[in-house]
Design a protein around this nucleic acid. Structure first.
Lengths: 148, 148
DNA sequence: ATCCTTGCAAAGCATTTGCAGTCAC
DNA sequence: GTGACTGCAAATGCTTTGCAAGGAT
């Protein structure tokens, strides 16, 4: 899928929801879809500003929210720091570096069957789950002295 | 373990780290340890103010951070809203209501053996993992119209 | 022409920090 | 008495919002 395809898909999804295709949204989506660094809103802003010098941080936040609402991106909130965004939609796990906060993709996945009986989680109706790995990325590992 | 025991344990842990036992920390810990509602800092503040009318929100934040640092509590950050705190230390899962944000304890746990090969997560050294269930709590379920 | 989106600046919210007074040891 | 802790208020950092001008259909 090249850049043209990506933009066509974006337009289609936006129109299906009564929203408009704009350069700003396209630039944000293009960047997010083509990277695996799971950037923060600020990082998206700095990067996208290379293509669209006039774009504002508020617009980046709004565009990201729009993409998440359309299912074209996921928001990764770990609270400790600012939210990160993921433009990949294939199944994968996230590993978060306890030292620098960077998110690394991990190919595997956890079968739902191995989780506790969903129906019987007290009076809670379980509809989904999320697994997050923690540890140290290649850049931070050498230190190895750090602990959580 | 009654209230007296809890306070003795707290004193011991604090002293082992060169920190002082105070009424404020004791009140926060007592409340957190005796509930399973996973309160936010604000909720802890409102509740503890019943015992200590003069306590400030900043002190609650500082006390919670101290307890987390001592391993006497866990901080649950889901980003969407404010952080929540857990004073229980026995193994259990957390189920988060997508409607109201409430956290419900679920007795089970996920064996590490069922996760993807830790050592081989790309160039990432995995040291731990976290599982979070999502769905709807008893109070929000009746609606059943809502979706994620 | 319509009305959605942008960009700017200001507001909002959770959390942290500086500091003088107070308390635990 | 000494150093850590509290409470207050101000500051911080991320994110959202109000609104007039601009852009997409």
């Amino acid at each position: 899928m090249d850049s043209t395809d990506i933009e066509r898909d974006l337009r289609q999804v936006l129109e299906a929801r009564g929203q408009r295709y704009t350069e700003q949204r396209a630039a944000v989506y293009r960047f997010l879809h083509g990277t695996d660094v799971h950037p923060t809103a600020e990082e998206v802003f700095l990067r996208v500003r290379g293509d669209l010098p006039g774009i504002s941080l508020a617009t980046v936040y709004k565009s990201l929210e729009t993409l998440v609402g359309c299912g074209l991106a996921h928001k990764l909130s770990y609270g400790d720091t600012s939210a990160r965004y993921d433009g990949r939609t294939d199944p994968h796990l996230h590993a978060r570096c306890l030292s620098c906060g960077r998110i690394t993709d991990v190919p595997g996945r956890v079968p739902a069957a191995q989780l506790p009986p969903p129906a019987r989680a007290g009076h809670f109706r379980v509809t989904g789950y999320r697994v997050e790995l923690t540890g140290y990325c290649a850049q931070c590992d050498p230190g190895e002295a750090a602990e959580a």
